[in-house]
Computed example of a mutant assay.
Amino acid sequence: MAETAKHIDEIVDDGASWYAVRLFTIRQEEVKAFFIENGLECFVPQQYVVVEGSNGRPHEILRPVVRNLIFVKQAAGERQFRKIIQDADYKISVLRKSKDSQEYALIPHEQMYEFRLMCNPEITMRKFLSSEEARMKAGTEVFVKFGPLKGLSGRLVRSSKKYYLLKEVPGIGVMLKVSRWCCVPAEDRK
């Protein structure tokens, strides 16, 4: 429980939008360090995985959910961010609004705030999906009015005879198990 509270306390909704940066290298930690050195906040969704230790016993460690994606908070103007991207010694690209557009896609702060809350590694009933898988899931826009996920919004989808709250951001989607009785249609939010 203390870890969950710590994770929530670290996530601040300061009104800043985020960029999704796709990596074409296996050096995710180095790229993240590069952005941090340039004064930018980064977020990488992580989950616990069981690995065998040197003593042969299994233990849990945190690992990134995807190795080719980093979310970077918009701290400066787009021109300055483009300069940082160009100065990188790594092959990376920022997701764009469309294939034809040169304009970077910005993830609104409310959407990214909820996504980061839902990526808490302490939550066990959670699934990560690719953007394509998330788009194929049929569901209704809902707002969670009761329970531990109170205040979150997303799509209510069904998977393996269970209900999940799905939140999508460019590049990835996350689903948390939720009781459908805790949810109300998004338009009935109040």
Rank of each mutant, 00 (worst) to 15 (best):
V50D: 15
M1K: 15
Q28A: 04
S17Q: 07
S93H: 09
V44P: 05
S54G: 13
E37Y: 01
I107K: 00
K32R: 15
L106N: 03
T124Y: 12
K6Y: 04
F43Q: 00
I70W: 01
T25K: 08
I36H: 08
K32L: 03
I61V: 11
G56S: 02
Q111G: 09
N120F: 07
F43E: 01
M118S: 02
L69W: 03
Q111P: 02
F115Y: 08
V94C: 06
A5G: 06
S98L: 06
P108S: 14
S131I: 06
E114P: 05
R27V: 05
L69I: 07
S101W: 08
F128M: 10
Y19E: 05
C119R: 07
Y113K: 02
Q74N: 08
V21T: 04
Y19G: 02
E78R: 09
V72N: 00
K91N: 12
E10T: 00
E122Q: 03
D89Y: 10
H7L: 01
Q47P: 13
V65E: 00
I8M: 10
A75T: 15
V94T: 03
K137H: 02
I84R: 02
E37I: 02
M118D: 00
F71Y: 12
I107Y: 07
E114R: 13
H59E: 09
A88E: 04
Y19N: 01
Y48G: 00
F24P: 02
L106D: 05
S130C: 10
E60R: 01
E37T: 15
E10N: 04
I84G: 05
E41V: 14
E78A: 05
W18N: 01
I107G: 09
V66I: 14
R135Q: 13
A20C: 03
Q80V: 14
S93Y: 03
R22I: 15
I8V: 15
P64A: 05
H59Y: 12
F71V: 00
N68Q: 12
R116Y: 12
K6T: 05
A105Q: 05
